[in-house]
Simulated assay, not measured.
Amino acid sequence: MSGFTTTAIHSIEDVEKNAIVPPIYLASTFTQPTDGTEGEFEYQRGGNPTRTQVEKTLANIEGAEHSFVYATGMAATQAAMGLVQAGENILLGMPNYGGNYRFATIELPKRGASAKFIGDFSTLSDDDFDEKTTMVFLETPANPTLKVSDIAKISEIAHRNGAIVVVDNTFLTPYLQRPLELGADITVQSATKYLAGHGDLLGGVASTNNPELAEQLWKAQLISGGVLSPIDSYRLLQDIKTLALRMDRQQENARRIIEVVQNHPSVEKVLFAGSYNESDAEIQARQAKGIGALFSFTLKEGKNIKAFLDSLKVFGFAVSLGGIESLICLPATMTQGAYTPEHLEEFAVEKGLIRVAVGIEDIADLEKDITTALDAA
Results as ranks from 00 to 15, higher is better:
residue 241 K to L: 03
residue 96 N to Q: 09
residue 325 E to K: 11
residue 204 G to V: 03
residue 30 F to V: 10
residue 332 A to L: 02
residue 40 E to T: 14
residue 140 T to L: 06
residue 374 L to G: 10
residue 26 L to F: 13
residue 233 S to V: 08
residue 355 R to M: 15
residue 277 N to W: 05
residue 358 V to H: 00
residue 54 V to H: 04
residue 306 K to R: 05
residue 103 F to N: 06
residue 240 I to S: 06
residue 99 G to M: 11
residue 337 G to T: 14
residue 216 Q to W: 12
residue 355 R to L: 15
residue 119 G to K: 11
residue 365 D to N: 13
residue 139 E to M: 13
residue 221 Q to D: 01
residue 156 E to A: 14
residue 75 A to G: 13
residue 83 L to K: 08
residue 297 F to A: 11
residue 272 F to G: 02
residue 319 V to N: 05
residue 123 T to Y: 10
residue 95 P to A: 07
residue 127 D to K: 07
residue 323 G to S: 15
residue 208 T to P: 07
residue 186 I to D: 00
residue 341 P to N: 04
residue 198 H to F: 12
residue 185 D to T: 04
residue 361 E to Y: 08
residue 314 V to W: 06
residue 353 L to K: 07
residue 331 P to M: 07
residue 147 K to M: 09
residue 33 P to Y: 05
residue 180 L to F: 12
residue 243 L to V: 00
residue 84 V to E: 02
residue 254 A to I: 03
residue 124 L to G: 09
residue 182 L to Q: 15
residue 225 G to D: 09
residue 90 I to L: 13
residue 273 A to V: 02
residue 279 S to R: 15
residue 54 V to K: 02
residue 200 D to H: 06
residue 281 A to C: 10
residue 173 T to N: 10
residue 327 L to D: 05
residue 120 D to G: 01
residue 302 G to M: 01
residue 210 N to M: 08
residue 259 E to N: 11
residue 347 F to G: 08
residue 153 K to I: 04
residue 123 T to E: 14
residue 71 A to Y: 05
residue 17 K to F: 13
residue 60 N to K: 12
residue 363 I to Q: 06
residue 85 Q to H: 07
residue 1 M to Y: 14
residue 157 I to S: 00
residue 238 Q to D: 12
residue 225 G to K: 13
residue 359 G to L: 07
residue 109 P to S: 05
residue 201 L to D: 09
residue 285 A to C: 01
residue 357 A to V: 04
residue 102 R to L: 14
residue 206 A to Y: 09
residue 276 Y to F: 13
residue 282 E to H: 14
residue 259 E to L: 04
residue 50 T to F: 01
residue 183 G to Q: 01
residue 287 Q to R: 05
residue 28 S to T: 14
residue 269 K to R: 14
residue 176 L to D: 11
residue 164 I to A: 02
residue 239 D to R: 11
residue 164 I to G: 07
residue 125 S to L: 06
residue 328 I to S: 09
residue 244 A to E: 09
residue 346 E to C: 07
residue 87 G to C: 06
residue 350 E to Y: 10
residue 314 V to Y: 07
residue 296 S to P: 01
residue 372 T to K: 12
residue 157 I to D: 06
residue 200 D to G: 07
residue 351 K to A: 14
residue 19 A to G: 04
residue 182 L to S: 08
residue 76 A to G: 08
residue 225 G to W: 08
residue 236 L to I: 03
residue 141 P to L: 01
residue 172 L to Y: 15
residue 267 V to L: 06
residue 56 K to V: 06
residue 9 I to F: 00
residue 67 S to W: 09
residue 195 L to Q: 04
residue 308 F to C: 02
residue 341 P to K: 13
residue 200 D to A: 13
residue 156 E to C: 06
